[in-house]
Simulated scan of single mutants.
Amino acid sequence: MNHKLKNTEVKTTSNQQEEKPKVRFFDIDHDDAGQRIDNFLLRTLKGVPKSHLYRLMRKGEIRVNKKRIKPVYKLLSGDVVRVAPIRISEKTDEVSTSLNIVASLEQQILFEDDRLIVINKPSGMAVHGGSGLSFGLIEALRALRPQAKMLELVHRLDRDTSGCLVVAKRRSALRNLHEQLRNKKVQKFYHALVKGHWSTKLTRVTDALKKNDLKSGERVVVVDNINGKPSETRYKVLQRYQGATLVRAFPVTGRTHQIRVHCQSAGHSIAGDAKYGHDDFDAQLKPKGLKRLFLHAASIEFVHPKTEQKIKIDAPLENSLEKLLANLTKVDN
């Protein structure tokens, strides 16, 4: 995304005087085309309230090709957006790259080019800030890549799930991958350590799932084959252990907490799952090194939006999970 930002000159009476806001011009290129102007401005002019942007559009102080527009106007390649002088709040919670958790993300990058970043997201890190969190993975990546014009999540992972997470560097790449997700062209494979002996014959779980919001505000997903949304997860046994099984899970649909709830409904809760797990199972594994949810996005396959070649990215298990498996007793399949 290479839209050019041009500022008109503003004279100041003193070097000590705070610089006044300037008129801004944005040249829209192919990557920015197709999105609504309100969404473009909210992303580009961070710190400006949505209500203020809408007011400026109503007053004609935000124009496209010198013409008034409405917030629903979809930008075209070659458009020139003019924004009247507007002060943007500089009071933002910047993410420090000196923080260990942020600096360590550099070593977790599995793939990067001018279109994408694929990162091995650590367990315990939310994909974005909010709900009491000052920042998440996407904010940390933006701090690590300040030169990037755009970094946006292509999909999400639960906070306690680790593994492959794709971030787009261009709007065109984001659109392309979202289309692949809608058309089920993206394949995501997870590894999970579950309770008990998972039968080789159990290759599919198709229970419908429904989201429930509790009074506490917590979101819980339950099996509801009457009112729930159709869901499917396919499974393959990778290794059996005494009292546990390592399985590969392929979510055909992408419901919230799908793999975790399908494992629970099959009678094989995932190790370390505080919401859908089994306390006795977790208690048996903690002395062997269980410290987190054992659900890991092990690989992802998709067509690269630029090269149009199919690529597969693998994310290795973190050391704590490898050590846990090493402490378990293998049994014959």
Rank of each mutant, 00 (worst) to 15 (best):
N2R: 14
N2G: 12
H3Y: 15
K6P: 00
K11Q: 12
E19T: 10
K22N: 10
K22V: 15
K22C: 14
Q35K: 11
Q35Y: 08
F40S: 08
T44W: 00
V48P: 02
K50T: 09
S51W: 00
H52P: 00
L53N: 04
M57Y: 01
R58H: 10
E61H: 11
E61K: 14
K70A: 10
G78E: 12
V80W: 00
R82H: 07
I88N: 07
E90W: 00
D93E: 13
E94D: 09
N100A: 14
V102L: 08
V102M: 08
I109S: 03
I109C: 07
D113Q: 08
D113C: 12
D114W: 06
R115C: 08
V118W: 02
A126T: 05
A140K: 01
R142W: 06
P146N: 11
L153V: 07
L153Q: 09
V154L: 05
R156F: 13
R156W: 12
C164N: 02
A168C: 08
R175S: 14
N176V: 00
Q180C: 07
L181K: 02
R182I: 05
Y190F: 13
W198Q: 05
T203L: 11
V205L: 05
D207K: 05
D207S: 12
L214V: 05
E218V: 11
E218W: 03
I226L: 13
N227M: 08
E232R: 07
Y235S: 09
R240Q: 15
Y241T: 02
G243P: 01
T256A: 08
H257I: 01
H257P: 03
H268S: 09
S269A: 15
D273C: 08
A274E: 14
Y276E: 06
H278Q: 08
A283T: 04
Q284F: 03
R292C: 07
L295C: 10
H296N: 07
E301W: 02
V303F: 13
P305H: 11
P305D: 06
T307M: 07
E308C: 04
K312R: 15
D314H: 14
D314A: 13
E318L: 09
L321Y: 07
L321M: 15
A326C: 04
N327S: 15
N327Y: 05
